[in-house]
């Protein structure tokens, strides 16, 4: 699946110009010939980048994409009014919108990162950032001082049917498989008996096959 945004050619050119990923000759030509709106976008982008770099220490691990996206969306939804009020305000002139839109979007991205970075990262009490793809499932993550453990408590999960036998194993560490090959896990009792084979389907979901 191609995740690249399907941008119009001009936008792609703009992105690559801002990102300085064009050939040097083309960069110089665009530096001279780009319209003022592009220069405004580049300045806003650089401002955002500088802001983010200054607020994210180099040692900070960027969150996984799903977690970052969910946090930004949570922040957006939290700050958005519940219902859009009927408006009789005269819209901004289009010229104002043209530079306000990029600044607003830059602020949104920056706010997302800053929100993430502003969350406390206690050193003695590790916690977990969580994301549940099923919106009905709630993950309560906290550090239990009593148990001296990080807890991720999943609520509203569908129960496993009582009639189902849980197939459990006692297996030893296995090295990664060669690309495209299934990974084979062996019994932990030293017998080198293969116990389970792990492969992945097209969607990267695991497929486990127990060996009788």
């Amino acid at each position: 699946m191609n995740d690249e945004p399907n941008l119009p050619p001009n936008d792609e050119l703009l992105l690559r110009w801002i990102d300085r990923s064009l050939p040097e000759v083309q960069l110089k030509a665009l530096d001279l010939s780009a319209p003022p709106a592009w220069h405004e976008q580049r300045a806003a982008s650089q401002l955002t980048g500088n802001l983010l770099r200054s607020s994210l220490p180099r040692t900070v691990e960027l969150p996984s994409p799903d977690l970052l996206t969910s946090r930004i969306m949570e922040a957006v939804q939290r700050d958005a009014p519940a219902t859009a009020p009927a408006s009789n305000i005269t819209p901004f002139p289009s010229r104002f919108r043209q530079w306000f839109a990029p600044l607003a979007s830059a602020a949104l991205v920056a706010a997302g990162f800053l929100l993430w970075n502003a969350k406390p990262h206690p050193r003695s009490s590790p916690v977990a950032e969580t994301y549940t793809p099923d919106s009905r499932v709630i993950a309560r993550a906290y550090f239990s001082d009593d148990a001296d453990a990080t807890v991720i408590d999943l609520e509203n999960l569908e129960a496993v049917p009582d009639s189902r036998e849980i197939r459990a194993f006692n297996i030893a560490s296995a090295d990664p498989a060669a690309p495209g090959e299934p990974q084979i896990f062996y019994a932990a009792n030293g017998s080198r008996k293969p116990v389970v084979v792990l492969s992945h389907d097209a969607a990267s979901a695991p497929h486990l096959r127990a060996i009788p």
Partner: peptide, 25 residues
């Protein structure tokens, strides 16, 4: 085939992660 939760966290010697899963029996 279903991912129940994704999490960025820390595992340390002596400080495990407990994941409370589905009900059963």
């Amino acid at each position: 085939k279903k991912v129940l939760v994704k999490s960025d966290t820390v595992i340390s010697p002596g400080q495990p992660v407990f994941l409370g899963g589905p009900k059963w029996r």
